[in-house]
Nucleic acid binder design. Structure first.
Lengths: 331, 331
DNA sequence: CTGAAAGCGCTTACAG
DNA sequence: CTGAAAGCGCTTACAG
């Protein structure tokens, strides 16, 4: 059992070279004679030397850390994104610090400062609050923002095609034969909500259907409230586009409690494409966001930030698709 | 917009004191005259100085990082634990690095090394693989293990009362009137599975009921397989204890597909008490683990590791409870 | 109470 | 190709 950790100087001594040479061998930053490489490698092996990442970070001003700031990791969509970030990070020798903001902008700021103090290499953030720009003010780290308008303070934004998502969801319900379609519309302050609404609205108009909606947040509880409102305000509803897969689950619960059959009486299209959506009974027809790609891309942007210099905020929009399952069917 | 980060020496210069004094003021590690405290505080404010955590870590050999190593963060049980760890960590000025092992012991080892290199303060780990002890060999960080037998290499183990969990689940089904109860039993190599089985078994014997079981892992897909096996091998089954809430969801899907009504034909008791369990339709009766407490306790053990010296591995067992909902009822 | 100095464990100009 | 030395930005014995 190894207790005393070896330092680079221990390796150097054992190999009969300087610490600089050991460092060069480890990092491949300069040519070292074959003979010395061999001796160094052997010494590393014998001493079980592991470079101290903190010391390296101090000099390099990079800790190979990516901060992922989310309102709540209990949101499954976020945890699937986090999964992708972690994997992409790990493959590149980076690690991810998971920062739960609880929708609290003080906590968000605290995390931004914390990550800055740690020489993190970048921040991936999804934030619902409007103060984000203020919080970011003065932050010197590259920031990749999910689901937001571009802003010169961000390095990039990543999102999926929300306009198309709203559109294909509506088209599908129309093709199934629905004529009274209601959208669970996210808050107007979110770019994604507005875009989905536009796509939904355009599809409806094309078929002379009046766009109907009730505003709702993305979580389960808000979904329950919104579902009740929909039934109250639109008694003839025959198709509903949920704001998320979670709210589709809320919707199903409320409809069932009201004795409605899904999909016979009312059809449901979820949104996100969580793994959960196909696990439910009935399995949820849903608009699939390329969750894994979103996470990987965001991580890659930070990891490769130096390779491609860019002055302005790049916007990335990834395609969505529709997965037809059991909550919709041809009438 | 602040671009150039201030260093402790900038603050010192501005306040007309030494860096040492600034450090003392920030950390409260020694008495400093009121007058100087005032000047330092003012200088910190003016320069917008934020201490570099990496430099501090290097000297202190602690980066206030807790590593949380899990098979998969897509497992909702794990993400709820992670949520609690993150919160407890944040409140104490620590951060959490989320490490997804993908059940891959090489990745696990890589993360253990990475955390060691980063002067992390401890590791919280849930691992299903039997190599854990080998991987940990030589790791000098305090390790808190979830759901495992105690071992002198660990600082502590934390788990909930699995024996009692199995017992109250069985008792409840018996009280509801079930007589052909099947346990979806986790793999024998897991301590938690064995304990739950004992509890289940004891409850059955007390009522002269034969303990029946099929082995299954905790995930959704394994749950589907296991559910099919149960129906095949035990056609008279009238009550099933799932290995997790996820597998209860699998179970419900399979039973529904076979035209069985829950709870009229077959009752289900889930396990874990995920938030998801009450969101499902029907809402799942389940054995509730104190998930938040498990996470917080594990984090606290690491954060306070110095305050209480201990030579041997402490075992913590937290109580479980039963939440009765819609998948069980009095016959 | 306070400062100069050493040290945390690496990396990299610099000089050879 | 290689080493001595400086430096990354803090903290803390040490001496006063």
């Amino acid at each position: 059992m190894v207790i005393n950790l070896a330092h680079i100087s221990d390796v150097a001594k054992l190999a009969g070279v300087s610490s600089a040479t050991v460092s060069r061998v480890i990092n491949g930053t300069a040519k070292v004679s074959e003979e010395k490489v061999r001796r160094v490698l052997k010494a590393i092996e014998e001493t079980n030397f592991k470079p101290n990442e903190i010391a390296r970070s101090l000099y390099k001003k990079s800790s190979r850390i990516i901060g992922f700031i989310v309102p709540s990791i209990l949101n499954i969509f976020m945890s699937e994104i986090g999964y992708a970030i972690e994997d992409e990070a790990f493959q590149n020798g980076y690690k991810m610090i998971l920062c739960n903001s609880d929708e609290n902008s003080e906590k968000e700021s605290a995390y931004i400062n914390m990550l800055t103090s740690m020489n993190a290499d970048g921040i991936i953030i999804t934030a619902n609050n409007e103060n984000l720009e203020k919080e970011i003010h003065g932050c010197t780290l590259p920031i990749v923002v999910l689901d937001k308008d571009a802003n010169s303070r961000y390095m990039a934004t990543v999102q999926s095609d929300n306009y198309m998502g709203g559109k294909i969801a509506a088209q599908h319900l129309i093709e199934c034969g629905c004529r009274n379609i209601v959208l669970m519309k996210g808050p107007d302050k979110y770019l994604s909500s507005r875009q989905r609404f536009c796509g939904y609205s355009d599809a409806c108009k094309k078929h002379n259907i009046e766009p109907l909606f009730i505003e709702s947040l993305y979580g389960f509880k808000d979904g329950i409230e919104c579902s009740n409102k929909i039934l109250k305000h639109f008694p003839n509803v025959d198709g509903i586009i949920a704001s998320s897969d979670m709210s589709a689950i809320s919707l199903y619960k409320v409809l069932t409690e009201h004795g409605k059959n899904v999909p016979d009486d009312i059809m449901i299209v979820g949104y996100d494409g969580l793994q959960l959506s196909k696990i439910m009974t009935p399995e949820i027809t849903t608009v699939v966001q390329p969750i894994e790609e979103i996470g990987r891309l965001a991580a890659r942007l930070i990891i490769n930030r130096n390779k491609c210099k860019m002055a302005e905020c790049k916007e990335y929009v990834l395609p969505v698709s529709l997965k037809i399952r059991q909550t919709t069917k041809l009438k």
